[in-house]
Design a protein around this nucleic acid. Structure first.
Length: 564
RNA sequence: CGGGGAGUAGCUCAGCCCGGCAGAGCACCGCGUUUGGGACGCGGGGGUCGCAGGUUCAAGUCCUGUCUCCCCGACCA
């Protein structure tokens, strides 16, 4: 490709909306252009990268016995009602056709693939199946952000596995995990595999592949000692033990003006772990009282899962008053009329300080079971940096990360609801056991740039580079330069090397800066200065200084490096 | 949805407080001189100042409404 003909000129200044390095580089190099919030066009150079990423994904999916197919973006609402997700999947794009029939723009394809499988799989002999596609997804995100990091329309690789038994699912899942590591390695993006919450997709086990970076919107907790790693949404940890004491009689304590846990700690001189924190939520319209030890915070994802709630929000002041709760001194003691969820930290923590549900009064020596009970006692605590690893008790490290891929063991949640069954060897109908596995292409490319750039521009990993050689001609008005450059260009093309030839009438500075910005792995410079020294210059994007190769050997030398 | 910020040329922004000829740099076009890390001279093209309404002799500037975009949070894969 001649750079003079390439659609889209590089930008010296990034548009104001870009804040992260990858976003600025995507825009400056003209890989993408924004059309609306979270909606982007791929320009030719960017689309070339996107195609290469998709080819890597295809190769790895095929190697893992995946079969590619392609499903519709427009899906009938009824399918989503069958799975129960029409009302629960937030951000679903819906539309009506001319006969006023409701349709959904697919944000994911569990429903459609399960429908396909129930029509086409009858016997255990038809299993396993691993079916995937590279397809455009639509999600009406509450807040698109970070350039390509969170968008409303994007290409996703989604593979769905169908197995006859749990062992089959494990094999499919493991094959995908291996393939994912291969994909991210080939794209130059380091990842850590973490335990994850399965969210709106459903199912039991799920893991995410996080690219650790300060610009990430997820939080990972990592144990460097034993290797435990989990998304903060899911992370478990060993809670600090309470002091062992005999339960003492519960008493009132006058606490004028003391409202927060911190107030109580200062006022009483007791530690945070000796207090009981109360938080109130509305879960799908129902009031919920949550109690947790004062040194811990509520993990709202865990809480939502316990409640099986779609919407979970903190009560506002008016609702708190209506329910008869006293903010700042709310108490589970004597509480009735709402669901009470307690973190298991309260079980073996005797003699806590809790609210008394009257202003300026707290109770001391509150003990679970004797003084109050919850409807559910379980782990609903949020893990933080320094918390003790659930496996080995060493302190966890907290890092931000971007979710590059997510794998789920769905089990039979969809196959049971949608009647996707097969006959086992005994002739019994069984629900198909499913898994699903997703990678976002846009996000992967953004991460690849974030992980592979310097202050001058992108440094493409070999497999993603839209061109492998960036051929720079300086002073192309001189015949010996032009002839050498043109001849090299033709030679590279004939040898099948993807080459971007900067044939513009621009100064050396402009051309070198664009070469660094665009980030092709190899730069070949043809100039009067180099020719006088008997050759052309060859430099890797990652190297500082070029080497000189003889004109007669130039083509062979470049080919050796590029293919090396 | 809550909080904050911004919409003026393709990009970055000034002008708005204090109403009075729409500007700069980069980019673009022409001519010439240049060419090893974002050259220079001369000449030129490009704007319903997000949109609607209002106030005024006069609105980019003041008022009201509205839309869009960005950031933080909520939420979400």
């Amino acid at each position: 490709m001649r750079l003079s003909r390439l659609f889209g000129k590089t930008l010296r200044q990034a548009p104001a909306e870009a804040e992260t390095d990858n976003h600025m580089l995507l825009l400056r190099a003209r890989l993408v252009e924004q059309l609306a919030a979270g909606v982007y066009s791929w320009l030719p150079l960017g689309w070339d990268v996107a195609r290469r990423v998709q080819e890597i994904i295809r190769a790895e999916m095929n190697a893992a016995e995946g079969q590619e197919l392609h499903m519709p973006g427009i899906q009938p609402r009824e399918l989503w009602e069958e799975s129960g997700r029409f009302d629960t999947f937030s951000g679903l794009y819906t539309l009506q056709d001319r006969r006023e029939r409701w349709m959904v723009l697919g944000p994911t394809h569990e429903e459609v693939i399960t429908d396909l499988v129930r029509r086409n799989v009858q016997s255990y002999r038809d299993l396993p199946q691993r079916l995937y596609q590279l397809q455009t997804k639509f999600r009406d995100e509450p807040r698109p952000r970070g350039g390509l990091i969170r968008v409303r329309e994007f290409i996703m690789k989604d593979l769905y596995s169908f197995d006859a038994d749990a062992g089959g699912l494990d094999a499919s899942y493991d094959a995908m995990v291996t393939a994912y590591h291969n994909i991210f390695r080939r794209c130059g993006v380091p990842v850590v595999q973490v335990q994850a919450d399965s969210g709106a997709i459903g199912g039991k086990d799920s893991q995410e592949f996080l690219f650790l970076t300060d610009i990430g919107e997820d939080t990972a907790l990592i144990c460097d000692h034993c290797g435990y790693a989990a998304n903060a949404e899911k992370a478990e940890f060993r809670k600090p033990r309470a002091e062992v004491e005999q339960p003492l009689p519960m008493e009132e304590l006058s606490t004028p003006g003391q409202k927060t846990i911190d107030d109580l700690v200062r006022f009483t001189g007791r530690s945070h772990a000796r207090t009981l924190k109360a938080v109130f939520y509305i879960a799908d319209g129902r009031p919920v009282f949550v109690a947790i030890r004062g040194d811990l915070d509520v993990n709202e994802i865990k809480l939502r899962n316990i409640l099986k709630a779609v919407e979970l929000e903190l009560m506002d002041d008016a609702q708190v008053r209506i329910r008869g709760l006293v903010a700042g001194s709310a108490s589970p003691v004597g509480l009735s009329g709402m669901t009470v969820i307690a973190d298991d930290s309260v079980l073996e923590s005797p003699n806590l300080i809790a609210g008394a549900n009257q202003p300026d009064v707290h109770y001391v020596n509150v003990n679970y079971q004797r003084d109050w009970q919850a409807d559910v006692v379980t782990d609903i605590a949020l893990a933080r940096a320094g918390a003790a690893c659930i496996r080995c008790a060493n302190p966890l490290r907290e890092r931000r990360g971007i979710e590059m891929g997510h794998v789920f063991k769905l089990g039979t949640v969809y196959s049971e609801k949608m009647g996707a069954t097969f006959l086992d060897p005994a002739g019994q109908a069984q629900p198909v056991i499913m898994g699903c596995y997703g990678i976002g292409v846009e996000r992967l490319i953004a991460a690849a740039i974030e992980a592979n750039h310097d202050e001058r521009g992108i440094i493409w990993p070999d497999e993603l580079a839209p061109y492998h050689v960036h051929l720079v001609g300086l002073n192309l008005d001189r015949p010996e330069v032009r002839d050498t450059a043109e001849s090299l260009y033709r030679g590279l093309l004939a040898a099948g090397v993807a080459t971007l030839y900067d044939d513009r009438q621009e100064s050396a500075g402009v051309k070198f800066n664009d070469a660094d910005l665009l980030g092709m792995p190899w730069r070949v410079t043809v100039s009067p200065r180099a020719l006088e020294r008997g050759g052309v210059e060859l430099k890797a994007r990652s190297q500082k200084d070029p080497e000189l190769v003889a004109v007669s050997d130039a083509l062979a030398a470049v080919l050796a490096r590029v293919r090396g």
